[in-house]
Design a protein around this nucleic acid. Structure first.
Lengths: 353, 353
DNA sequence: ACGATTCGTGGAAACGTTTCCACGCGGCCG
DNA sequence: CGGCCGCGTGGAAACGTTTCCACGAATCGT
């Protein structure tokens, strides 16, 4: 009680948060009891509970989770790494993962790789240093993946999303990119199109290459020759495509339809069509918010990022609960949403020229 | 070396990560030296550095940041709470904050409040228990804010974004919602419109009420009477607005223009206009990705979420660096982006009827 | 040649929690 | 009536790091 006796003041140090020791002193109990009250454990008398809670209120005590994590080894946190949290697809995935994390009273650390393997590596290792319970990862293409094996061996659980693992033995949730693209392109072929342009992301990206493969598969099934002149892969999703589209339109045998490999590219294609003041049939991969507001509505091959997040977290928590069965890859089917842009027949497009 | 002597195996325990102690033993140095090497401190011989690094590699050692945080008290982490990480505006803010956090080698914890004060409270207290260095918060309307004061007093720095503080003495970055709305509506008035509908979010939300105030201010300046029949506030941003819009259009003196209070509402309004097969002049608040792809392009009052994130983090880090000057609120100006939908004159709209 | 300074180093204390062990005290059963 | 059990409790050890202190060796200045 006496502040001048050389011992530190009884109830509070000047600029530090109260600890359980402080609470114990004020409540007149032991630290063990404080811990039991804070964690809602049984075997504590009503009196003690009341005294401790009163002390907590007056001191503004808040448990220091760093200490708890150190002691228990469980951090109750999940790390999420995607390409870009601002991307419409990944932001929905992010939200979906957050919901599952919240349900488990955990906390979510998020990061964007920007498709840079080095940045991804840095963030993942940072997450591991924080001893996250599990990782949800969209691993960028290229770069060494071996560092992940060390973390895996050290006992960190992880799930890949949107891309399958290459060498690593980990769970994954992916989308049937190839099948979805094949369906979308076949849809266009069904409306008489034989010259179908294909705009995608960088082909070294897993999803882009799969979608291109689906595009080619659909052509092959219909006996339509593949023409590399009709394929354009942009280096970034923000890049406008009016120049390459213009070149295709000016060629001897111009396309009458377009398959757009992702939602940003769909938007870019729509913009380019407006610039060239023409209309082609369009099917895009991945739904986006305004797809049914433009005229005509954009027919898309839709993914389900919410389901992807839920399933990924389900797999992750099963591992955290001790499941050691062999790893599996869940493939989500896509859904063709018909809105008009994909149902413009070849004849209609040609007639409008 | 002998595993059978009752002492635990020299280099590794079965299922635990290597600690600095392990590294020290393998490298033949003390733990202090290992710590110095890991943290790149000076005053370590080349030999020791090499030995320690070799040991780190063979053991797969990774510093346990829980312990580090406990000891140092600095968690190198920032907590971000927004309405919804999947919202186009907040996902860009999220990304921008992430960039600043990364620059400081920190980690970002994210959460969505879903406009629920109770959920916000829970997440903020969780972040505080994790002893985040700082908080970036979009605090939902309603509910008690007093718990924040306790955290503030305990020394947690925080910045409000998108909403100003009510009672609390904290920094904030907001947008000139009222001025932006006024500019947008005045723009419509400049094209001859006098009957301007206003669709917004729940009016108990700060941003929505400010924008409505701006709408009214513009009307007042132009001497146009305010008609509550022309204002509709949806309860959720996902709610379609074709029904209320239809009612307005069927009235004796229908609107010739619309001011949409946020980007999702803009989209809903465009959809509703299509359903009613009519066209009105539109100005929306907040830019969105497809605004210049629809026909006509949507004229918007644009915010800059990226700048908001940068400025907020700048203010936060200044506080963390010890700045104790009085708190301030930065107001970001909006920018009118003209794309066509807002430049449809009253006469043109009436002529098309 | 000798004290003073520097450098590299090892080791112990401390951070705040959880958990385990031991203790006192009733009441219960045999 | 005595041992036993269970309950509520206090306190100490442990988690893995950082940091401070102390120590020996080597270098320096005079």
């Amino acid at each position: 009680m006496d502040a001048g006796d050389g011992v530190r003041v009884a109830t509070e140090r000047p600029n530090a948060r109260a600890t359980m020791k402080d609470v114990a002193r004020v409540a007149g109990v032991g630290v063990g009891t404080v811990s039991r009250v804070v964690n809602g454990k049984s075997n504590v008398s009503e009196e003690s509970i009341a005294a401790v809670n009163a002390a907590i209120d007056t001191l503004g005590f808040r448990r220091n989770d760093s200490a708890r994590m150190l002691r228990t080894g469980a951090t109750a946190s999940i790390g999420l790494l995607v390409e870009d949290v601002a991307d419409p697809f990944f932001s929905l995935l992010n939200r979906s993962v957050e919901e599952e994390v919240l349900r488990r009273d955990s906390v979510l650390l998020t990061a964007s790789s920007d498709k840079d393997p080095e940045r991804a590596r840095k963030m993942i290792l940072t997450f591991c240093a924080r001893r996250v319970d599990g990782l949800v990862i969209t691993l960028p293409e290229g770069g060494d993946e071996e560092y992940l094996r060390a973390e895996l061996d050290a006992g960190t659980s992880m799930v890949f999303v949107d891309r399958p693992p290459r060498e690593l033995d980990v769970d994954a949730v992916i989308v049937d990119n190839r099948g979805g693209a094949r369906t979308g392109v076949a849809h266009l072929i069904g409306y008489g199109h034989r010259r179908i342009a294909c705009f995608t992301d960088r082909p070294d990206l897993y999803t882009a290459s799969e979608r291109i493969a689906g595009y080619r598969a659909a052509l092959k099934e219909a006996g339509i020759p593949f023409d590399p002149e009709l394929v354009y892969s942009s280096s970034t999703t923000r890049e406008p495509v009016d120049e390459p589209l213009g070149r295709m339109l000016a060629s001897a045998d111009p396309p009458t339809a377009v398959f757009a490999g992702n939602n940003r590219t769909s938007i870019n294609v729509i913009g380019a069509l407006r610039i060239h003041n023409t209309s082609l049939a369009i099917v895009g991969f991945d739904d986006f918010e305004l797809a049914d507001v433009v005229v005509p509505g954009i027919t898309v091959v839709a993914q389900d990022p919410k389901a992807m997040g839920q399933i990924a977290m389900g797999m992750l928590y099963k591992r955290l609960d001790g499941d050691v069965s062999s790893s599996q890859t869940v493939t989500l089917n896509t859904r063709l949403i018909v809105r008009g842009s994909g149902e413009l027949s070849r004849d209609a497009v040609l007639a409008a020229r």
